[in-house]
Design a binder for these strands. Sequence first.
DNA 1: GAGAAATACTTGTAAATACAAGTATTAAGT
DNA 2: ACTTAATACTTGTATTTACAAGTATTTCTC
Lengths: 239, 239
Amino acid sequence: MELRQMKTPRHRKLYEILRKHINDGVYSEGDLLPSENDLCNVYGLTRPTVRQALAALVQDGYISKQQGRGSIVKKMPQGIGILSVSGTTSALKDKNLKTEIIEKPHIIPWPANFMFGLSDLEIESGCIHMTRLRLLDDNPIFYDISFIPAINLPRFTARNFRNRSLFDILRKAYQVEIKGGEQRIKAIMAEKDISGYLKIRPGHPVLHMERKMVTNRPELNVYSSIYCNTKDYSIFGTF
Amino acid sequence: MELRQMKTPRHRKLYEILRKHINDGVYSEGDLLPSENDLCNVYGLTRPTVRQALAALVQDGYISKQQGRGSIVKKMPQGIGILSVSGTTSALKDKNLKTEIIEKPHIIPWPANFMFGLSDLEIESGCIHMTRLRLLDDNPIFYDISFIPAINLPRFTARNFRNRSLFDILRKAYQVEIKGGEQRIKAIMAEKDISGYLKIRPGHPVLHMERKMVTNRPELNVYSSIYCNTKDYSIFGTF
DNA sequence: GAGAAATACTTGTAAATACAAGTATTAAGT
DNA sequence: ACTTAATACTTGTATTTACAAGTATTTCTC
């Protein structure tokens, strides 16, 4: 009986280490990473291997490189298309983001005429449904309706999501990472229920996003229908 | 007097060749590219160099790779965040896209309080300004206000943009390619002039995007303020 | 002290080589 | 005829070596 354990490539290991260091604040924004040769010596690797790890960090937006200088830590908003907002008047960093649960996660059958096409496995598995309201400085900004296929996510509905990021929980508790996705955006008039949650008057324009986010787990996609109050904030994104 | 011509790396050359072949239809979707060793022999390169070119093609979405099989051609829509629309009712491919010029390109000083920060060179160079209306099946969808720094773009204002893509002209006539950018999106109420162009009634919600697109030419960024009628169409994007 | 040149250090490009691991084809065995 | 094993071929990982090119620092010269 041959039990083969998934062996991680060395360049991947280094990538994980450096990414963790960046996220943990070992390096601040604008700092230089150790030089490629330093990394070689410290971790006992050769330059191509180190460069492979650094290339992945560039690709994922954690660092940028400059010939002759070094690898510069970016520590950007770091959401692969995950929502990031930018205030129109003041900076955002010292504002506090809260998440209120409107509807706790519970399993339902998928809605008819769902906004995205679903695979057979997704349909069979049923759907974890939850709605949340996200506030910035106590101003409601996002009204977020999420749909997640109930595929191997034990005790998911029992977790506490208040003031916690859905994607953090998926990553840390289930090793699910968002790899990419697609979205449709339009401007609509807020209907009564939405305007109530977002504390704007009915008829005011709101942003409506329908997004499908694919993960490292095949068949496990996260679907969201999001209504945004963009009166004081804009949706910000890079591409 | 030392005149140094920009010498392109070999992996870049191969990247360009393969990308052109893919775009020209030498390979169809799903086809396998020649194996890495074949490419080495044909172009007289070593595998690391070939792999660097292929990695760039993967990164830019032209191919995907599978260990043991080969490099599979994807030939996807290939718009780096460039506007793409998806109809809510019917498919889009057989619809016809037209572009009308509201205001021909002309050089102006940059507006005060411009939506993005500008470099000194950009400010000095002045700004090519134009406004266009884009229609899908004769329905006005985008009202597009563009700002481009007038840096080494000879005879730009004399060109004909009607029913032609701005980015195509930049690429083909000036070798300017969009590499990425950032954008801010909000939902607003259409004011009188906008609603007139988009043929909707004032007060109707429209999408407003402010985008900065960076190119392969340093300091040459394309700025746009775009108003979208999203009544029948959504803005579609992948990430 | 200020500017220019030399120097050290950094990332970029590229070659040659070796083996591991996944896939597809072919050959062998039942 | 079908399954299984061998094999050829593909991409993945990794080392070693060398030089080019850009940046930052130091040293020299005036």
